[in-house]
C-alpha cells in the first residue's frame, strides 16, 4: 500500500518476523529507525518505507515492533511540519522526514488506540485504552486524563466527551483538559 505525503511516497508493509523487518530496514540507503524494540512480547512487525519522489529510488525505513493485543499501529501525516506521527504499543513517536530523525517521543500510560487530529486548533488527541493525551502538532504535551476503560470519545466544538466502562461520562475542555459541565 502506498500513501503520498508531500513529495514523499510511503509504503506500508506487515512482516511476520523481526528478522524480515530488520532485513528490509537494512536495505534503506537513507537510514532506518526501529521503534518499539522494548515491546514485550513482540508479536507483529511493520515497516513504513519513505521514498522522496524528488531523488530517485532512495528509502528511509521506519520499523515498528508491536505487542499486538489485536491492535495495529497508526500513522498520522503532518505535511506542513514534515512529520509522521506513529502510534503503537504505549507510545507515540514523531519522525521528521526531512532530517530523518526522531523529533519527539511520548510515553503513554495505556495502549495506543488512535489519533484524533484537530487541525484548526493545532492539537492532536491521542485516544488510548484508558487515557486521552493532548499534544500540539509539534509534539508538546498539553494534558492527559484517564480514569477507566474508554468506550467512546467524541469531539464537539471545544468539548471532548468520554464514555467509560465503569465510570460516569466525562466532558473535558480540549485546550486545557479541565473538566467542564455538560
Amino acid at each position: 500500500m502506498f500513501v503520498t505525503f508531500t513529495e514523499n511516497v510511503v509504503e506500508v508493509q506487515e512482516w511476520s518476523t523481526k528478522k524480515e523487518l530488520t532485513r528490509c530496514l537494512a536495505q534503506c540507503d537513507l537510514g532506518s529507525i526501529l521503534l518499539g524494540e522494548d515491546a514485550e512480547p513482540e508479536h507483529k512487525f511493520y515497516s513504513a518505507l519513505v521514498r522522496p519522489q524528488t531523488s530517485g529510488l532512495h528509502y528511509l525505513g521506519i520499523g515498528i515492533c508491536s505487542e499486538g493485543h489485536g491492535l495495529k499501529p497508526h500513522l498520522l501525516m503532518q505535511p506542513e511540519l514534515d512529520i509522521i506521527l506513529l502510534g503503537y504499543n504505549q507510545e507515540v513517536t514523531g519522525i521528521n522526514i526531512k532530517n530523518r530523525e526522531v523529533a519527539f517521543q511520548i510515553k503513554l500510560n495505556s495502549l495506543f488506540y488512535y489519533f484524533l487530529p484537530l487541525k484548526e486548533r493545532g492539537i492532536v488527541l491521542i485516544v488510548q485504552e484508558v487515557d486521552v493525551t493532548a499534544i500540539t502538532d509539534s509534539g508538546k504535551e498539553l494534558w492527559r486524563y484517564g480514569k477507566d476503560l474508554i468506550t467512546q470519545a467524541a469531539v464537539e466544538g471545544e468539548k471532548l466527551y468520554l464514555n467509560f466502562m465503569d465510570e460516569n461520562p466525562t466532558c473535558l475542555n480540549i485546550i486545557s483538559g479541565e473538566l467542564v459541565s455538560v
Binding site: L71, L111, T151, Q152
Partner: peptide
C-alpha cells in the same frame, strides 16, 4: 462501542 476496544 469503540472498534479498538472491541478488537482488543
Amino acid at each position: 462501542g469503540n472498534p479498538d476496544t472491541i478488537t482488543r
